[in-house]
Amino acid sequence: MNWEVISSYLPLYWKAMLLTLRIGWLGILFAILIGFLVAIVRFYKVPVVSRIAGVYIEFFRNTPLLVQLFFLYFALPKIGIPMNAEFTGALGLALLGGAYMAETFRSGLESVAKIQTESAMSLGLNKSQTVLHIIFPQAFSVSVPAFVANVIFLLKETSVFSAISLMDLMFRAKDLIGLYYKTTECLVLLVFFYALILIPVSVLGDRLERRVRHAEFGD
């Protein structure tokens, strides 16, 4: 292992990591929003929209992100919708993640017993107060472990971005290996930087989990 090589690559990896983070966090943010809306639509069985949401979930959960990205990036421009690479990456991640988040949130919502709603309403709470103060918090504390797992999964999925020529960590590693054949150094750096992103997320996720679930489930 050549430490000089490693230190000279560091700035390149750092830049690549920032790109991974930028697209990753944008994608995940929108995945949460999409997932939340889709879960609500599915949970309340909104006519027609709920069916469409079901098709969306099945479609995006059952095709690889790589294929989805290829489709968004190469096929859409052919029918006149121009796509830039960063936007495509974030969109792909948001659509994939939205499908996973939707199912996670929905299962949380479904886990709240109907009689909890009745109990809240018998105290004079109206529908929106019941949803906001009683159903959502309980649903979230059930969903949170799967939610954290989704976030980690989505961050790891960003490693296919290089396929649409985004200069993320994976792209950087492959590129440098191709240029200089310092395979070991490049791969060690790759592992290190992914861990640098994911370990803190994992730790934060753990904390969130403990905090949110303490009331209902203890430690």
Binding site: Q116, S119, A120, S122
Partner: peptide, 15 residues
Amino acid sequence: EKVGMVFQSYELFPH
């Protein structure tokens, strides 16, 4: 608000 109800299964809010 004026007609209170207590359930068999308590139904306290667990959170």
